[in-house]
Design a protein around this nucleic acid. Structure first.
Lengths: 250, 250
DNA sequence: CGTAATCTTGACCAACGTCAATGTTCGTGG
DNA sequence: CCACGAACATTGACGTTGGTCAAGATTACG
């Protein structure tokens, strides 16, 4: 749970390759100018760093530019629940800018870089650009649908299904960002992270991975995930991809 | 899983007592006029009715006016996961208006009445009234925080804690709407509903209820919930109430 | 008053968690 | 390049939590 260790570089929003991907809705010129104006820095942190900590009041929100992160809750008992994996293009801490001190923490899973945006200006943009706010709302509603599905997964599937679900869901999200090939992608999570994401113990998550491997459905090793037949795995665990919508990217 | 059985009455938004509660942010005159204009009907359904069904394309969204409802997922295996309890003032199917056919169903737990709002006009309002869209976004972000907490509850708490958490969380939401007294409130859920909300079997949810009762923490009987000491129960299960913010009501 | 739904409970079983030991990988300093 | 240690992965043995089945009690309602 290290902190800081941040390096700073810079990328201009207009030159940003990430926001050109088809998954993201292109911003209007005005919006892009406003976003560029509120961008405070481009910072890079090493794996293991906490980017945001629950309870700390924040005037800044971030867009993950490169690498992986995880939103999580830490309980007093020591248990941890990973709420969601954060992938490039996802917003971080938007809630704390609009609602005050955050309720979750965010942890870099790999070397990761972020665009830091000034909260005040972002709120101003939301409250003045109608189409922009509606768009962010749409993206947020899509996040809610994914969250609903994850709750069902944790509440109603068995160990093998939960892990399988988590793997295909993540694979599918990466695929839409052009970060996979047909059956493979990077997968920097440790066993303990997988367990904390699906509500299992580390040992039992391990057993579930073995079962998936034995069934020829998925394999996680050396930081990469292979899914022989994504459609088959999806069917096996009851994963239904959400219809593609273009997401707002800040 | 009955359907229809709808009666129609009418209440004008300007006269609506619900939206005057402190929990909700008062709308500007313009906003209220626009909402009134998009209100198509005020409909009432009996307990057990499905108000919204997943997969059906919807051009209407609803505000629960009176009674209780539940958002849920139904799996092919027959298992059901209750995603959230819907209380008076909560929006229903907002997502399907902005994103297309819904992914969850909504079920009336009691005799319940709803305001039906025209989707097209609502989208227009969101895309033209900047402050309004920002406000709905804020409410949606607050919902996400509650959803995060529920995921942690289902993923990381034991049976007694899960049920206790669900009870206080619901109690607290009702309290903010002025629908409880100090230690009691209506509670129309069946045992099976509680089980489906917290990811347990009906029998085991039963055992958890007994444990809570034995510990003098909570009692559910004859359609009402008694929590002797809400703060104590909250502490027992690790429930932390979110800071109060004024919610958007449509 | 009768029937169906729901609640409640006990007995038993399976899924998942815990503990602990061993293997593996990877980064670091020599 | 090699030796070492720390972090992580893997596995087996065993305990516990929660699921399943089934029967009887109670309640709601026509």
């Amino acid at each position: 749970m290290r902190r800081a260790d941040a390096r700073v570089t810079n990328v201009r929003c207009i030159d940003c390759a990430l926001r050109r991907k088809r998954l993201f809705r292109p911003l209007s010129g005005d919006e892009l100018t406003a976003i560029q104006a509120m961008k405070q820095q481009h910072l890079t942190v090493s794996a293991g760093t906490d980017v945001v900590r629950s309870g700390e009041p924040v005037r800044i929100c971030y867009t993950l530019f490169d690498g992986w992160a995880a939103r999580y809750h830490q309980l007093k008992s020591g248990a941890r629940q990973i709420l969601d994996v954060v992938l490039p293009g996802d917003a971080i801490a938007l809630d704390s800018v609009l609602l005050g001190a955050g309720t979750h923490s965010v942890h870099a899973l790999t070397l990761a870089s972020f665009c830091a945006l000034d909260g005040k200006q972002l709120v101003a943009l939301l409250e003045n650009e109608p189409a922009f706010a509606a768009d962010v709302l749409r993206t947020q509603l899509e996040n809610e649908r994914r969250a609903d599905a994850r709750l069902t997964m944790v509440g109603r599937l068995n160990a093998e299904e939960r892990v399988g679900y988590f793997l295909v869901e993540t694979f599918e999200r990466l695929r839409r960002r052009g970060l996979t090939d047909a059956t493979q992608c990077a997968f920097p999570l440790r066993r303990a992270d997988i367990a904390d994401a699906v509500g299992l113990s580390k040992v039992h998550a391990m057993r579930a991975l073995r079962a998936l491997h034995a069934h020829g459905l998925a394999d996680v090793s050396k930081g990469s995930l292979t899914i022989t037949d994504p459609a088959q795995l999806a069917a096996h665990v009851g994963f239904v991809p959400l219809p593609t919508t273009r997401r707002a990217i800040l």
